[in-house]
Design a protein around this nucleic acid. Structure first.
Length: 561
RNA sequence: GGCGGAGUAGCUCAGUGGUAGAGCAGGGGACUCAUAAGCCCUUGGUCGGUGGUUCGAAUCCGCCCUCCGCUACCA
Protein backbone atom coordinates (compact mmCIF):
# COMPACT_ATOMS: atom_id res chain seq x y z
CA UNK A 1 0.00 0.00 0.00
CA UNK A 2 1.53 3.24 -1.12
CA UNK A 3 -0.80 5.85 0.34
CA UNK A 4 -0.84 6.59 4.03
CA UNK A 5 -3.39 4.62 5.95
CA UNK A 6 -5.69 6.56 8.21
CA UNK A 7 -7.72 5.28 11.10
CA UNK A 8 -10.40 7.19 12.97
CA UNK A 9 -11.95 5.54 16.00
CA UNK A 10 -14.23 6.71 18.76
CA UNK A 11 -15.71 5.58 22.02
CA UNK A 12 -19.14 6.55 23.21
CA UNK A 13 -18.92 9.78 25.16
CA UNK A 14 -19.39 9.23 28.87
CA UNK A 15 -22.41 10.68 30.63
CA UNK A 16 -20.90 13.25 32.98
CA UNK A 17 -23.44 12.87 35.75
CA UNK A 18 -21.05 11.38 38.32
CA UNK A 19 -17.52 10.14 38.85
CA UNK A 20 -16.14 7.56 36.39
CA UNK A 21 -16.45 3.84 37.06
CA UNK A 22 -14.23 1.11 35.72
CA UNK A 23 -17.08 -0.13 33.50
CA UNK A 24 -17.27 3.27 31.81
CA UNK A 25 -13.56 3.38 31.13
CA UNK A 26 -13.44 -0.22 29.93
CA UNK A 27 -14.29 0.62 26.33
CA UNK A 28 -11.96 3.62 26.45
CA UNK A 29 -9.08 1.37 27.45
CA UNK A 30 -9.95 -1.02 24.64
CA UNK A 31 -10.16 1.81 22.15
CA UNK A 32 -6.89 3.25 23.41
CA UNK A 33 -5.11 -0.06 22.84
CA UNK A 34 -6.53 -0.26 19.32
CA UNK A 35 -5.51 3.34 18.66
CA UNK A 36 -1.96 2.68 19.84
CA UNK A 37 -1.77 -0.43 17.71
CA UNK A 38 -2.63 1.67 14.65
CA UNK A 39 -0.27 4.46 15.61
CA UNK A 40 2.57 1.99 16.03
CA UNK A 41 1.81 0.60 12.60
CA UNK A 42 2.38 4.07 11.23
CA UNK A 43 -1.27 4.73 10.42
CA UNK A 44 -2.41 8.31 10.73
CA UNK A 45 -4.64 7.67 13.70
CA UNK A 46 -7.26 9.84 15.33
CA UNK A 47 -8.78 8.64 18.59
CA UNK A 48 -11.76 10.55 19.94
CA UNK A 49 -13.35 10.16 23.35
CA UNK A 50 -15.03 12.57 25.73
CA UNK A 51 -18.08 13.44 27.74
CA UNK A 52 -21.80 13.92 27.18
CA UNK A 53 -22.78 16.87 29.33
CA UNK A 54 -26.31 18.00 28.60
CA UNK A 55 -29.50 16.62 30.15
CA UNK A 56 -32.27 17.52 32.54
CA UNK A 57 -30.72 15.07 34.98
CA UNK A 58 -27.42 16.86 35.11
CA UNK A 59 -29.09 20.24 35.54
CA UNK A 60 -31.12 18.81 38.43
CA UNK A 61 -28.10 17.25 40.11
CA UNK A 62 -26.13 20.46 39.77
CA UNK A 63 -28.98 22.51 41.19
CA UNK A 64 -29.18 20.24 44.22
CA UNK A 65 -25.51 20.92 44.84
CA UNK A 66 -26.04 24.65 44.39
CA UNK A 67 -23.91 24.74 41.28
CA UNK A 68 -24.41 25.78 37.71
CA UNK A 69 -24.62 22.83 35.33
CA UNK A 70 -21.40 23.90 33.65
CA UNK A 71 -19.49 24.15 36.94
CA UNK A 72 -20.77 20.70 37.86
CA UNK A 73 -19.77 19.01 34.61
CA UNK A 74 -16.40 20.75 34.71
CA UNK A 75 -15.75 18.93 37.98
CA UNK A 76 -16.90 15.59 36.56
CA UNK A 77 -14.75 16.05 33.48
CA UNK A 78 -11.73 16.71 35.68
CA UNK A 79 -12.37 13.40 37.44
CA UNK A 80 -12.63 11.62 34.10
CA UNK A 81 -9.42 13.10 32.83
CA UNK A 82 -7.56 12.19 36.00
CA UNK A 83 -8.84 8.61 35.89
CA UNK A 84 -8.05 8.28 32.19
CA UNK A 85 -4.54 9.52 32.75
CA UNK A 86 -4.07 7.01 35.54
CA UNK A 87 -5.00 4.19 33.20
CA UNK A 88 -2.92 5.44 30.31
CA UNK A 89 -5.54 6.82 27.92
CA UNK A 90 -4.10 9.02 25.18
CA UNK A 91 -6.92 10.46 23.05
CA UNK A 92 -6.17 12.77 20.16
CA UNK A 93 -9.07 14.85 21.30
CA UNK A 94 -11.18 14.76 24.42
CA UNK A 95 -14.44 16.21 23.20
CA UNK A 96 -17.08 17.76 25.42
CA UNK A 97 -20.59 18.36 24.15
CA UNK A 98 -20.33 21.81 25.73
CA UNK A 99 -17.43 22.67 23.39
CA UNK A 100 -18.37 25.61 21.13
CA UNK A 101 -17.55 23.83 17.87
CA UNK A 102 -19.89 21.04 18.85
CA UNK A 103 -22.85 23.39 18.96
CA UNK A 104 -22.05 24.50 15.43
CA UNK A 105 -21.90 20.87 14.31
CA UNK A 106 -25.25 20.03 15.91
CA UNK A 107 -26.84 23.09 14.36
CA UNK A 108 -25.54 22.12 10.95
CA UNK A 109 -26.88 18.58 11.33
CA UNK A 110 -30.29 19.98 12.29
CA UNK A 111 -30.28 22.43 9.40
CA UNK A 112 -29.38 19.71 6.92
CA UNK A 113 -32.12 17.41 8.18
CA UNK A 114 -34.57 20.28 7.99
CA UNK A 115 -33.48 21.30 4.52
CA UNK A 116 -33.85 17.70 3.45
CA UNK A 117 -37.46 17.60 4.64
CA UNK A 118 -36.76 15.16 7.44
CA UNK A 119 -37.91 17.42 10.27
CA UNK A 120 -41.50 18.29 10.98
CA UNK A 121 -43.51 19.69 13.87
CA UNK A 122 -45.49 17.19 15.88
CA UNK A 123 -46.59 16.36 19.37
CA UNK A 124 -45.06 13.82 21.66
CA UNK A 125 -46.92 12.50 24.64
CA UNK A 126 -46.21 9.90 27.24
CA UNK A 127 -45.42 9.20 30.85
CA UNK A 128 -42.84 11.58 32.18
CA UNK A 129 -40.65 10.90 35.20
CA UNK A 130 -39.42 14.20 36.65
CA UNK A 131 -36.08 12.52 37.35
CA UNK A 132 -35.56 10.81 34.03
CA UNK A 133 -37.83 12.42 31.47
CA UNK A 134 -40.10 10.50 29.13
CA UNK A 135 -40.26 6.77 29.72
CA UNK A 136 -41.19 3.97 27.35
CA UNK A 137 -44.36 2.12 28.39
CA UNK A 138 -42.34 -1.10 28.55
CA UNK A 139 -40.00 0.55 31.08
CA UNK A 140 -42.77 1.32 33.53
CA UNK A 141 -44.13 -0.69 36.41
CA UNK A 142 -47.87 -0.87 36.85
CA UNK A 143 -49.67 -1.81 40.05
CA UNK A 144 -52.91 -1.05 41.88
CA UNK A 145 -51.83 2.51 42.66
CA UNK A 146 -50.99 3.35 39.07
CA UNK A 147 -47.95 3.57 36.85
CA UNK A 148 -44.48 4.08 38.29
CA UNK A 149 -40.94 4.58 37.13
CA UNK A 150 -38.92 1.48 38.13
CA UNK A 151 -36.01 3.64 39.24
CA UNK A 152 -38.10 6.15 41.16
CA UNK A 153 -41.12 4.25 42.45
CA UNK A 154 -42.09 6.95 44.91
CA UNK A 155 -42.25 9.70 42.34
CA UNK A 156 -45.57 10.46 40.71
CA UNK A 157 -45.44 10.24 36.93
CA UNK A 158 -47.02 12.88 34.77
CA UNK A 159 -48.75 12.38 31.42
CA UNK A 160 -47.20 15.13 29.36
CA UNK A 161 -47.66 16.40 25.87
CA UNK A 162 -44.92 18.32 24.11
CA UNK A 163 -44.90 20.08 20.79
CA UNK A 164 -41.63 18.92 19.24
CA UNK A 165 -39.70 18.61 16.07
CA UNK A 166 -39.70 15.04 14.78
CA UNK A 167 -37.12 13.31 12.65
CA UNK A 168 -38.51 11.16 9.84
CA UNK A 169 -36.77 7.91 10.80
CA UNK A 170 -39.62 6.00 9.19
CA UNK A 171 -38.46 7.27 5.82
CA UNK A 172 -35.11 5.51 6.25
CA UNK A 173 -36.27 1.98 6.92
CA UNK A 174 -35.59 0.74 3.39
CA UNK A 175 -32.31 2.58 3.05
CA UNK A 176 -31.11 1.18 6.36
CA UNK A 177 -32.07 -2.35 5.40
CA UNK A 178 -30.22 -1.95 2.14
CA UNK A 179 -27.16 -0.60 3.92
CA UNK A 180 -27.16 -3.58 6.26
CA UNK A 181 -27.45 -5.92 3.29
CA UNK A 182 -24.63 -4.20 1.41
CA UNK A 183 -22.35 -3.99 4.46
CA UNK A 184 -22.89 -7.28 6.29
CA UNK A 185 -19.99 -6.69 8.68
CA UNK A 186 -20.70 -3.12 9.64
CA UNK A 187 -22.15 -4.02 13.05
CA UNK A 188 -20.13 -6.47 15.11
CA UNK A 189 -20.38 -8.93 16.76
CA UNK A 190 -22.85 -10.44 14.34
CA UNK A 191 -25.53 -11.26 16.88
CA UNK A 192 -25.76 -7.59 17.71
CA UNK A 193 -26.32 -6.81 14.05
CA UNK A 194 -29.10 -9.36 13.90
CA UNK A 195 -30.85 -7.76 16.85
CA UNK A 196 -30.86 -4.44 15.08
CA UNK A 197 -32.04 -5.97 11.81
CA UNK A 198 -34.93 -7.47 13.71
CA UNK A 199 -35.72 -4.09 15.16
CA UNK A 200 -35.65 -2.38 11.78
CA UNK A 201 -37.97 -4.99 10.29
CA UNK A 202 -40.55 -4.32 12.98
CA UNK A 203 -40.98 -0.93 11.40
CA UNK A 204 -39.37 2.35 12.35
CA UNK A 205 -41.17 5.24 13.98
CA UNK A 206 -40.17 8.87 13.84
CA UNK A 207 -38.54 10.26 16.96
CA UNK A 208 -38.56 13.71 18.46
CA UNK A 209 -35.38 15.73 18.28
CA UNK A 210 -36.31 18.82 20.27
CA UNK A 211 -37.31 19.43 23.86
CA UNK A 212 -39.45 22.26 25.19
CA UNK A 213 -38.62 21.93 28.86
CA UNK A 214 -34.93 21.08 28.98
CA UNK A 215 -33.02 24.36 29.17
CA UNK A 216 -29.61 22.66 29.80
CA UNK A 217 -29.00 21.67 26.22
CA UNK A 218 -27.96 22.91 22.81
CA UNK A 219 -30.41 25.57 21.62
CA UNK A 220 -32.63 24.37 18.81
CA UNK A 221 -31.59 26.53 15.87
CA UNK A 222 -34.91 26.67 14.05
CA UNK A 223 -38.24 28.31 14.99
CA UNK A 224 -41.51 26.50 14.28
CA UNK A 225 -42.00 28.63 11.17
CA UNK A 226 -38.67 27.46 9.82
CA UNK A 227 -36.73 30.65 10.48
CA UNK A 228 -33.52 30.82 12.46
CA UNK A 229 -33.94 30.99 16.21
CA UNK A 230 -30.85 33.14 16.59
CA UNK A 231 -31.59 36.58 18.00
CA UNK A 232 -29.94 39.81 16.85
CA UNK A 233 -27.56 39.76 19.81
CA UNK A 234 -26.30 36.32 18.80
CA UNK A 235 -28.09 34.40 21.52
CA UNK A 236 -30.77 31.81 20.84
CA UNK A 237 -34.47 32.18 21.36
CA UNK A 238 -35.43 29.96 24.31
CA UNK A 239 -38.88 29.51 22.77
CA UNK A 240 -37.25 27.24 20.19
CA UNK A 241 -36.32 24.74 22.92
CA UNK A 242 -33.24 22.59 22.90
CA UNK A 243 -31.89 19.70 20.86
CA UNK A 244 -32.71 16.18 22.03
CA UNK A 245 -29.60 15.00 23.84
CA UNK A 246 -29.02 11.91 21.72
CA UNK A 247 -29.14 13.91 18.50
CA UNK A 248 -26.59 16.16 20.16
CA UNK A 249 -24.45 13.35 21.58
CA UNK A 250 -24.18 11.30 18.39
CA UNK A 251 -23.08 14.34 16.45
CA UNK A 252 -19.85 14.49 18.49
CA UNK A 253 -18.33 11.94 16.13
CA UNK A 254 -18.36 14.43 13.26
CA UNK A 255 -17.55 17.45 15.41
CA UNK A 256 -14.38 15.72 16.54
CA UNK A 257 -12.93 15.70 13.04
CA UNK A 258 -13.81 19.19 11.89
CA UNK A 259 -17.47 19.23 10.91
CA UNK A 260 -18.55 21.76 9.77
CA UNK A 261 -15.78 24.28 10.48
CA UNK A 262 -12.95 22.59 8.60
CA UNK A 263 -14.26 20.80 5.49
CA UNK A 264 -10.81 19.70 4.34
CA UNK A 265 -9.93 18.09 7.61
CA UNK A 266 -13.36 16.54 7.84
CA UNK A 267 -13.11 15.09 4.35
CA UNK A 268 -9.79 13.52 5.25
CA UNK A 269 -11.05 11.89 8.41
CA UNK A 270 -14.69 11.00 7.91
CA UNK A 271 -16.20 8.40 7.83
CA UNK A 272 -15.04 6.90 11.09
CA UNK A 273 -13.43 3.51 10.77
CA UNK A 274 -14.72 2.31 14.10
CA UNK A 275 -17.23 3.32 16.75
CA UNK A 276 -16.81 1.35 19.97
CA UNK A 277 -19.96 1.32 22.07
CA UNK A 278 -21.78 -0.59 24.79
CA UNK A 279 -24.66 -2.86 23.97
CA UNK A 280 -27.18 -0.59 25.68
CA UNK A 281 -26.76 2.12 23.08
CA UNK A 282 -26.56 -0.07 20.01
CA UNK A 283 -29.84 1.12 18.51
CA UNK A 284 -28.84 4.75 18.74
CA UNK A 285 -25.62 4.07 16.85
CA UNK A 286 -26.74 1.60 14.23
CA UNK A 287 -30.21 2.90 13.35
CA UNK A 288 -30.69 6.48 14.48
CA UNK A 289 -27.17 7.71 13.78
CA UNK A 290 -26.89 6.27 10.27
CA UNK A 291 -30.28 7.77 9.42
CA UNK A 292 -29.09 11.15 10.70
CA UNK A 293 -25.98 10.87 8.54
CA UNK A 294 -27.96 9.86 5.47
CA UNK A 295 -30.22 12.83 6.01
CA UNK A 296 -27.19 15.12 6.27
CA UNK A 297 -25.69 13.64 3.11
CA UNK A 298 -22.67 12.21 4.95
CA UNK A 299 -21.13 8.75 4.59
CA UNK A 300 -21.70 6.18 7.32
CA UNK A 301 -19.10 4.81 9.72
CA UNK A 302 -17.37 1.69 8.47
CA UNK A 303 -17.84 -0.39 11.57
CA UNK A 304 -19.57 -0.31 14.93
CA UNK A 305 -18.23 -2.68 17.57
CA UNK A 306 -20.66 -3.48 20.39
CA UNK A 307 -18.92 -4.67 23.53
CA UNK A 308 -20.53 -6.25 26.55
CA UNK A 309 -20.74 -5.28 30.17
CA UNK A 310 -18.62 -5.90 33.20
CA UNK A 311 -20.66 -7.94 35.63
CA UNK A 312 -20.30 -8.28 39.37
CA UNK A 313 -21.75 -11.57 40.54
CA UNK A 314 -23.97 -11.66 37.50
CA UNK A 315 -25.22 -8.10 37.76
CA UNK A 316 -24.22 -5.23 35.53
CA UNK A 317 -21.52 -3.06 37.05
CA UNK A 318 -23.07 0.40 37.28
CA UNK A 319 -23.04 3.58 39.21
CA UNK A 320 -26.68 3.30 40.17
CA UNK A 321 -26.12 -0.17 41.66
CA UNK A 322 -23.08 1.14 43.49
CA UNK A 323 -21.13 -2.04 42.70
CA UNK A 324 -18.51 -0.41 40.53
CA UNK A 325 -14.76 -0.37 40.97
CA UNK A 326 -12.91 2.92 40.91
CA UNK A 327 -10.51 2.89 37.95
CA UNK A 328 -8.03 4.95 39.91
CA UNK A 329 -7.97 2.33 42.68
CA UNK A 330 -7.42 -0.46 40.20
CA UNK A 331 -4.63 1.44 38.48
CA UNK A 332 -3.03 2.20 41.84
CA UNK A 333 -3.08 -1.46 42.86
CA UNK A 334 -2.11 -3.11 39.57
CA UNK A 335 -0.25 -0.25 37.96
CA UNK A 336 -1.38 1.52 34.82
CA UNK A 337 -0.33 -1.33 32.57
CA UNK A 338 -1.42 -4.06 34.95
CA UNK A 339 -4.89 -2.56 35.09
CA UNK A 340 -5.07 -2.22 31.30
CA UNK A 341 -3.83 -5.73 30.64
CA UNK A 342 -6.06 -7.39 33.19
CA UNK A 343 -9.12 -5.48 32.00
CA UNK A 344 -8.58 -6.37 28.36
CA UNK A 345 -7.44 -9.96 28.95
CA UNK A 346 -9.92 -10.93 31.64
CA UNK A 347 -12.97 -9.32 30.05
CA UNK A 348 -14.08 -10.64 26.66
CA UNK A 349 -14.49 -7.72 24.26
CA UNK A 350 -17.55 -9.21 22.56
CA UNK A 351 -19.74 -10.19 25.50
CA UNK A 352 -20.48 -9.74 29.20
CA UNK A 353 -17.93 -10.99 31.68
CA UNK A 354 -18.09 -11.44 35.42
CA UNK A 355 -15.18 -9.71 37.13
CA UNK A 356 -13.95 -9.34 40.67
CA UNK A 357 -11.00 -7.88 42.46
CA UNK A 358 -9.76 -11.41 43.02
CA UNK A 359 -10.06 -12.38 39.36
CA UNK A 360 -8.01 -9.30 38.45
CA UNK A 361 -5.28 -10.10 40.95
CA UNK A 362 -5.15 -13.74 39.87
CA UNK A 363 -4.85 -12.76 36.23
CA UNK A 364 -2.20 -10.19 37.01
CA UNK A 365 -0.12 -12.67 38.98
CA UNK A 366 -0.51 -15.55 36.56
CA UNK A 367 0.12 -13.69 33.30
CA UNK A 368 2.14 -10.62 34.16
CA UNK A 369 4.14 -11.46 37.28
CA UNK A 370 4.67 -15.22 36.92
CA UNK A 371 4.65 -15.87 33.19
CA UNK A 372 5.89 -12.79 31.39
CA UNK A 373 7.54 -10.67 34.08
CA UNK A 374 9.42 -13.63 35.43
CA UNK A 375 10.43 -14.76 31.94
CA UNK A 376 12.01 -11.37 31.33
CA UNK A 377 13.64 -11.32 34.72
CA UNK A 378 15.11 -14.82 34.55
CA UNK A 379 16.37 -14.25 31.00
CA UNK A 380 18.04 -10.99 31.97
CA UNK A 381 19.45 -12.35 35.21
CA UNK A 382 21.09 -15.28 33.44
CA UNK A 383 22.49 -12.94 30.81
CA UNK A 384 23.95 -10.74 33.52
CA UNK A 385 25.29 -13.69 35.46
CA UNK A 386 26.61 -15.94 32.71
CA UNK A 387 27.54 -13.46 30.00
CA UNK A 388 28.48 -10.44 32.06
CA UNK A 389 25.51 -8.49 30.72
CA UNK A 390 26.54 -8.74 27.11
CA UNK A 391 23.50 -9.33 24.90
CA UNK A 392 24.00 -12.18 22.42
CA UNK A 393 22.23 -12.18 19.08
CA UNK A 394 19.37 -14.62 18.53
CA UNK A 395 19.84 -17.45 16.11
CA UNK A 396 18.43 -17.17 12.62
CA UNK A 397 14.71 -17.83 12.14
CA UNK A 398 15.60 -21.17 10.57
CA UNK A 399 17.67 -22.31 13.54
CA UNK A 400 15.73 -20.97 16.51
CA UNK A 401 12.87 -23.17 17.73
CA UNK A 402 11.19 -20.15 19.29
CA UNK A 403 11.18 -18.34 15.96
CA UNK A 404 8.77 -20.93 14.61
CA UNK A 405 6.51 -20.57 17.64
CA UNK A 406 6.70 -16.81 17.26
CA UNK A 407 5.54 -16.85 13.67
CA UNK A 408 2.38 -18.71 14.68
CA UNK A 409 1.75 -16.60 17.78
CA UNK A 410 2.28 -13.33 15.95
CA UNK A 411 -0.07 -14.34 13.15
CA UNK A 412 -2.77 -15.37 15.62
CA UNK A 413 -2.31 -12.21 17.64
CA UNK A 414 -2.64 -9.96 14.60
CA UNK A 415 -5.67 -11.85 13.33
CA UNK A 416 -7.52 -11.62 16.62
CA UNK A 417 -6.57 -8.01 17.12
CA UNK A 418 -7.73 -6.90 13.70
CA UNK A 419 -11.07 -8.54 14.47
CA UNK A 420 -11.14 -6.68 17.83
CA UNK A 421 -11.12 -9.86 19.89
CA UNK A 422 -8.64 -8.20 22.20
CA UNK A 423 -8.78 -10.88 24.90
CA UNK A 424 -8.06 -13.61 22.35
CA UNK A 425 -5.25 -11.54 20.87
CA UNK A 426 -3.53 -11.38 24.24
CA UNK A 427 -4.14 -15.07 24.84
CA UNK A 428 -2.36 -15.86 21.56
CA UNK A 429 0.60 -13.75 22.59
CA UNK A 430 0.79 -15.39 26.00
CA UNK A 431 0.87 -18.85 24.47
CA UNK A 432 4.22 -17.79 23.11
CA UNK A 433 5.28 -16.65 26.57
CA UNK A 434 4.51 -20.18 27.74
CA UNK A 435 6.59 -21.62 24.92
CA UNK A 436 9.51 -19.40 25.93
CA UNK A 437 9.28 -20.52 29.56
CA UNK A 438 9.25 -24.16 28.47
CA UNK A 439 12.25 -23.42 26.28
CA UNK A 440 14.20 -22.26 29.31
CA UNK A 441 13.52 -25.47 31.18
CA UNK A 442 14.27 -27.60 28.15
CA UNK A 443 17.64 -25.92 27.58
CA UNK A 444 18.60 -25.47 31.25
CA UNK A 445 21.06 -22.61 30.73
CA UNK A 446 22.35 -23.06 34.30
CA UNK A 447 23.58 -26.51 33.33
CA UNK A 448 25.22 -25.08 30.24
CA UNK A 449 26.85 -22.41 32.38
CA UNK A 450 28.30 -25.07 34.64
CA UNK A 451 29.77 -26.88 31.63
CA UNK A 452 31.23 -23.60 30.42
CA UNK A 453 32.97 -23.15 33.76
CA UNK A 454 34.43 -26.60 33.24
CA UNK A 455 35.83 -25.50 29.89
CA UNK A 456 33.19 -26.85 27.47
CA UNK A 457 33.44 -24.62 24.37
CA UNK A 458 30.37 -26.12 22.69
CA UNK A 459 28.31 -25.34 25.79
CA UNK A 460 29.50 -21.73 25.65
CA UNK A 461 28.17 -21.31 22.13
CA UNK A 462 24.94 -23.04 23.04
CA UNK A 463 24.46 -20.82 26.08
CA UNK A 464 24.82 -17.69 23.96
CA UNK A 465 22.32 -19.03 21.44
CA UNK A 466 19.76 -19.91 24.08
CA UNK A 467 19.98 -16.59 25.88
CA UNK A 468 20.01 -14.70 22.59
CA UNK A 469 16.80 -16.45 21.59
CA UNK A 470 15.22 -15.75 24.97
CA UNK A 471 16.02 -12.06 24.96
CA UNK A 472 14.64 -11.84 21.45
CA UNK A 473 11.44 -13.54 22.61
CA UNK A 474 11.09 -10.99 25.41
CA UNK A 475 11.65 -8.13 22.99
CA UNK A 476 9.02 -9.41 20.57
CA UNK A 477 6.37 -9.89 23.23
CA UNK A 478 7.15 -6.48 24.69
CA UNK A 479 6.63 -4.71 21.39
CA UNK A 480 3.60 -6.74 20.37
CA UNK A 481 1.98 -6.09 23.74
CA UNK A 482 3.01 -2.42 23.82
CA UNK A 483 -0.46 -1.12 22.87
CA UNK A 484 -1.74 -2.84 25.99
CA UNK A 485 1.20 -2.09 28.30
CA UNK A 486 2.44 1.25 26.95
CA UNK A 487 4.34 2.40 30.02
CA UNK A 488 6.08 -0.89 30.80
CA UNK A 489 7.07 -1.56 27.17
CA UNK A 490 9.72 1.19 27.09
CA UNK A 491 11.05 0.11 30.49
CA UNK A 492 11.31 -3.43 29.21
CA UNK A 493 13.16 -2.23 26.12
CA UNK A 494 15.51 -0.35 28.40
CA UNK A 495 16.28 -3.44 30.47
CA UNK A 496 16.84 -5.44 27.31
CA UNK A 497 19.17 -2.72 26.09
CA UNK A 498 17.22 -2.06 22.88
CA UNK A 499 15.86 1.30 21.73
CA UNK A 500 12.16 2.09 22.09
CA UNK A 501 11.38 4.24 19.07
CA UNK A 502 7.80 5.25 19.85
CA UNK A 503 6.48 8.34 21.60
CA UNK A 504 4.36 8.07 24.74
CA UNK A 505 1.16 7.85 22.67
CA UNK A 506 2.58 5.30 20.24
CA UNK A 507 3.30 7.70 17.39
CA UNK A 508 6.61 7.87 15.56
CA UNK A 509 9.01 4.98 15.04
CA UNK A 510 9.04 2.41 12.27
CA UNK A 511 5.98 0.33 11.36
CA UNK A 512 5.52 -2.14 14.19
CA UNK A 513 5.62 -5.12 11.86
CA UNK A 514 9.27 -4.41 11.17
CA UNK A 515 10.12 -4.69 14.85
CA UNK A 516 8.04 -7.84 15.20
CA UNK A 517 10.19 -9.88 12.82
CA UNK A 518 12.37 -12.43 14.58
CA UNK A 519 15.91 -11.11 14.63
CA UNK A 520 15.03 -7.51 13.79
CA UNK A 521 16.45 -6.17 17.04
CA UNK A 522 19.81 -4.41 17.19
CA UNK A 523 22.87 -6.65 17.16
CA UNK A 524 25.21 -6.60 20.11
CA UNK A 525 25.12 -4.23 23.03
CA UNK A 526 24.53 -4.71 26.71
CA UNK A 527 21.45 -5.29 28.78
CA UNK A 528 20.28 -2.98 31.53
CA UNK A 529 19.68 -3.82 35.15
CA UNK A 530 17.09 -6.58 35.64
CA UNK A 531 14.23 -5.19 37.72
CA UNK A 532 10.83 -6.87 38.08
CA UNK A 533 8.38 -5.15 35.74
CA UNK A 534 5.22 -6.56 37.31
CA UNK A 535 5.80 -7.22 41.03
CA UNK A 536 3.74 -10.09 42.29
CA UNK A 537 0.62 -9.19 44.27
CA UNK A 538 -0.88 -11.15 47.09
CA UNK A 539 -4.46 -12.35 46.84
CA UNK A 540 -6.76 -11.79 49.76
CA UNK A 541 -6.81 -15.52 50.38
CA UNK A 542 -3.02 -15.62 50.62
CA UNK A 543 -2.95 -12.61 52.87
CA UNK A 544 -5.46 -14.28 55.17
CA UNK A 545 -3.48 -17.54 55.30
CA UNK A 546 -0.44 -15.65 56.56
CA UNK A 547 -2.15 -15.46 59.91
CA UNK A 548 -2.79 -19.21 60.01
CA UNK A 549 -0.58 -21.18 62.43
CA UNK A 550 0.23 -23.67 59.65
CA UNK A 551 2.57 -21.20 58.02
CA UNK A 552 4.20 -19.89 61.16
CA UNK A 553 7.59 -21.47 60.40
CA UNK A 554 7.72 -19.28 57.34
CA UNK A 555 8.85 -15.80 58.34
CA UNK A 556 6.22 -13.42 57.06
CA UNK A 557 7.59 -10.95 54.58
CA UNK A 558 5.89 -7.59 54.46
CA UNK A 559 3.02 -7.65 52.00
CA UNK A 560 3.48 -5.51 48.95
CA UNK A 561 0.52 -3.15 48.60
C1' G B 1 -46.11 -13.11 23.48
C1' G B 2 -42.51 -12.55 18.97
C1' C B 3 -37.37 -13.14 17.21
C1' G B 4 -32.48 -14.81 18.68
C1' G B 5 -28.63 -17.04 21.89
C1' A B 6 -26.78 -20.20 25.77
C1' G B 7 -26.64 -24.57 29.26
C1' U B 8 -19.38 -29.00 28.73
C1' A B 9 -14.29 -30.11 35.00
C1' G B 10 -14.60 -25.74 41.35
C1' C B 11 -14.28 -20.91 37.97
C1' U B 12 -13.99 -18.77 32.79
C1' C B 13 -14.61 -20.94 28.30
C1' A B 14 -12.97 -23.97 23.43
C1' G B 15 -14.80 -28.04 20.98
C1' U B 16 -20.78 -28.99 15.03
C1' G B 17 -20.56 -36.95 13.83
C1' G B 18 -15.50 -41.05 15.29
C1' U B 19 -12.51 -43.18 22.06
C1' A B 20 -14.24 -35.65 26.38
C1' G B 21 -10.23 -30.25 25.98
C1' A B 22 -7.50 -25.43 27.55
C1' G B 23 -6.38 -21.65 31.12
C1' C B 24 -6.98 -20.56 36.23
C1' A B 25 -7.84 -22.92 41.03
C1' G B 26 -6.57 -27.88 43.79
C1' G B 27 -2.84 -32.27 44.57
C1' G B 28 2.14 -34.56 43.70
C1' G B 29 7.28 -34.40 41.72
C1' A B 30 12.12 -33.11 39.77
C1' C B 31 15.04 -28.79 39.32
C1' U B 32 17.19 -23.87 40.74
C1' C B 33 18.29 -19.00 36.21
C1' A B 34 14.10 -16.14 38.27
C1' U B 35 9.21 -11.96 41.12
C1' A B 36 8.80 -19.22 46.45
C1' A B 37 8.02 -17.51 39.85
C1' G B 38 8.89 -21.41 35.85
C1' C B 39 8.80 -26.85 34.25
C1' C B 40 6.74 -32.03 34.51
C1' C B 41 2.82 -35.22 36.22
C1' U B 42 -2.02 -35.28 38.25
C1' U B 43 -7.39 -35.05 40.83
C1' G B 44 -11.85 -33.55 38.63
C1' G B 45 -17.17 -33.87 33.91
C1' U B 46 -23.08 -39.86 33.03
C1' C B 47 -21.05 -32.52 27.84
C1' G B 48 -29.23 -29.36 31.31
C1' G B 49 -33.19 -33.55 30.76
C1' U B 50 -35.61 -36.89 27.53
C1' G B 51 -36.90 -39.41 22.95
C1' G B 52 -35.01 -40.19 18.07
C1' U B 53 -31.58 -40.44 13.41
C1' U B 54 -26.78 -43.06 12.85
C1' C B 55 -22.21 -48.44 12.91
C1' G B 56 -21.11 -44.16 16.06
C1' A B 57 -23.82 -37.68 18.93
C1' A B 58 -21.40 -32.71 23.37
C1' U B 59 -21.84 -32.23 18.03
C1' C B 60 -27.98 -33.64 13.73
C1' C B 61 -33.69 -33.73 14.69
C1' G B 62 -38.26 -33.52 18.24
C1' C B 63 -40.08 -32.33 23.04
C1' C B 64 -39.15 -30.44 28.06
C1' C B 65 -36.45 -27.50 31.93
C1' U B 66 -33.31 -23.27 33.18
C1' C B 67 -30.80 -18.77 32.05
C1' C B 68 -29.78 -14.60 28.86
C1' G B 69 -30.22 -10.81 24.70
C1' C B 70 -33.50 -7.65 21.43
C1' U B 71 -38.64 -6.09 21.39
C1' A B 72 -37.95 2.82 20.54
C1' C B 73 -37.55 8.57 22.75
C1' C B 74 -33.02 8.64 31.06
C1' A B 75 -28.34 9.58 29.33
Amino acid sequence: MSDLQRFYLTTAIAYANSRPGLHTLYEVVGADAIARWHRMHGHETFFLTGTDEYSVNIATTAAKLGKTPKAFVDEMVALYRTAEEAIGIAPDRFIRTTDPDHMRAVHEMIRRAHANGDLYQGTYEGWYCPNEGFRAPSDLVEDATGVHCPNHPGVELQWLTERNWFFRLSAYQERLERYYADHPDWVQPEYRKNEMLGFIRQGLEDFSVSREKAPWGIPFPIMPDGSSSQLPDGSWNPEAGTVYVWFDALTNYVTGVGFPDDPDRFAGRWPADLHIIGKDINRLHTIMWPAMLMSAGLPLPREVWVHGWLLVQGERMSKSRGNFLDPTDVAAALGTDGARYVLLREVAFDRDTDVSWDSFVRRYNADLANDFGNLVNRSLSMTARYLGGERPAPRSPDEAPLAVAWRAAHAAHEAKLSGYFLHDALAALWEFVGAANRFVDAEQPWVLAKSVREGDQAAAARLRDVLGDLLEACRLVGFAAAPFIPTVAPRLADQLGVPYPYAADGNGGPPLDELLRWGSGPAGGRIGVPTPLFPRLETEAQLASRDEPASRDEPASPAQA
